Structure formats: C-alpha cells, structure tokens
Simulated scan of single mutants.
Amino acid sequence: MKRPTTHMENVLGSKIAQPDELEIPGSEEFDSDRVLYFSVKKGQSARALFQRILNFSDPPNAQSGGAHEGGCLIETTTSEIFCAVRFRGDLVGWRKDIEQGAAAVGSELARIENGNLVTFDGRSFSLTECTIEFT
C-alpha cells in the first residue's frame, strides 16, 4: 500500500524518504552521481575528516560539480567505520581529490559492490552483517 503524501512533501514537491525507505549510498549506480566511503576512527569527527580530505588538493583536481557527505555510516564486523561521500560532475577530478586527501590523512577508502563494502586493499564485508546508520 502506498503511503499518503505528507503536508511537508506537498510543500516541497517531492517525497521525503522514511527510515524504512532509505538506500545505502552507492548500492545503486547512477550516471551523474558516484559514491566512495572513507574510514573514520572511533571518536573522530566524520564531518571534520571529510573537510580535511576534500580540502587537501590545492588547487583541486575537480573542475566542476561537487561533493558532499552521503548521510550514511557503515560499521564493519571488525568495528571499522566508513562514511559515504557522494560526488558528481568531474568524476575523475573528484575521485583523484578524494583519493589524495584520504591518503594524506591516513583514511582508507571503500566502495559498495554486489552487496558488499569492499576496501581498496581488497577486504570485503557483507552489508547484511554490517551496522548501517543514516545521518
């Protein structure tokens, strides 16, 4: 059964995803939007680390588009935490900026592939065994 549109959705002109409707960023690939995950140490601010990663390249490699936090944290079975970053526009430039920034701050990168969180060093964690938090 389709849920009724809320007053706020009518005002905004679009649906607001409910908690049971949220999708893990990167689990479905879109042409205009890409997602990577960067590791965050326990107690470390994901937002502050995100800013350090994106501001590392000076001048930036990306010439168009933008990047933002993906609103999702994934905790693996080994208690590692990964935070989503979405980027669009100059995909090659943004990916290079994110990779260089993550390397500079000692953050590991990962991506979603076939229902798994796969780190760039090849480790794989089934998303069904991970703890997912939408922020």
Rank of each mutant, 00 (worst) to 15 (best):
P59F: 06
S27L: 04
A110W: 12
S45M: 09
E99P: 01
L73F: 13
T119M: 13
I24P: 07
K2A: 15
D121I: 09
A103Q: 12
I98E: 06
E9Q: 00
C72I: 05
V105F: 02
M1Q: 09
P19N: 11
S57V: 08
P4Q: 08
Q51L: 15
S14P: 00
F30M: 14
D20R: 04
A84R: 09
V92E: 10
R34M: 14
P25W: 03
F38E: 10
P59H: 07
I132N: 10
H7M: 06
L49G: 05
G66R: 10
I53M: 04
L49N: 03
V40S: 11
V118W: 07
T131V: 14
E9S: 00
F87I: 11
K41C: 10
L12V: 00
E133L: 14
T5H: 06
G65Y: 02
E28C: 08
A62K: 03
N61D: 03
D121M: 05
P25A: 04
Q100I: 01
G106N: 08
R52W: 03
P19H: 06
I53K: 01
L109W: 04
T5Q: 13
D33S: 13
E75M: 15
E133A: 14
S126M: 12
L54P: 00
G115S: 11
E29A: 14
A46R: 06
D121P: 02
G101W: 01
E23G: 09
F134V: 13
I132A: 09
A110V: 12
I98W: 04
N10A: 09
C72A: 05
S126Q: 14
S64A: 15
F125I: 10
V118H: 05
A46K: 11
W94L: 09
N55M: 07
C130I: 10
E21M: 05
F82C: 14
G122D: 13
L73V: 07
G66H: 03
Y37I: 07
P25F: 01
C83Q: 12
E113T: 01
D33Y: 04
E28N: 13
D58I: 09
D58P: 00
V35P: 01
D33I: 08
T128I: 14
A67T: 05
C130T: 13
A46W: 11
A48N: 07
R3I: 08
D20T: 10
F50Q: 07
V35H: 01
A103K: 08
